[in-house]
Amino acid sequence: MNTRLPFALLAVLAAACGGALSESASSGTPERPTQTSATNPGVVPTSTATSGNPAPPSAPNAPNAEGVDVLLCDGKTKANFATGTPGNQIASALMNEWLRKNPDAHWESNERASHGLQPASDNKELVGKASPGQTYGHISEQDVALWKIETERLALAGSRVFHSADELGSTVAVSCDMCHPHAENTHPETYPKFQAQLGRVVLLRDMINWCMQHPVRAEPLSADDPRMRAMEAYIYAQRRGKTLEYGKH
């Protein structure tokens, strides 16, 4: 056993703990992004904390002749290792077990590889601009990287819903991409506008719901449904660079 174990676990397990589908970055009031970053991957390495003893993760916290129980930060995945098992072996064994139970773990990269995504702005020009005491007081490379990753993650979640009749809840096996590949022909930049067929002014989400009810034959989504938020994100993302022209027909 050596002192590198906690770091190995931290690096590998961050993917497992921070990679789940969430909108964590978008909730709450604006915080200093570095704080968000630091709190995001909640790594709780191994201890089941039966005692108050701040023992290193590799130490036998439940003395057992047959080895050590190690618990993954998901609080569920657990395995027993012989005392003296190298930390990297423990880490990869736990990670493999977690991946086996979570076959969808790589959904983000799969979604990106399948359907592509227009990149979010990288905000590189803001890096290093210091103005102490402000919300955007000092912006690091990690900050802008995090903003981009989190924003694209929401859009990717939207892409996944958009391309899946099941996630949309379609009763006729129809998904959005069947008429709108790459979200083409969705023209979000033209909303709000007077929708002649409905006789009223609508937002993009109203048209999403119109499609949900008609071609897709699914239940309409509430405005704050995570699927609605994600799909809006995806559709706007795909029209990056287009001029806003609300009211345009």
Binding site: A113, S114, H115, G116, H163, D177, P181, H182
Partner: peptide, 10 residues
Amino acid sequence: KTVAGLDNGM
């Protein structure tokens, strides 16, 4: 299903 997605780049 991969082929059936018009915009599926896989």
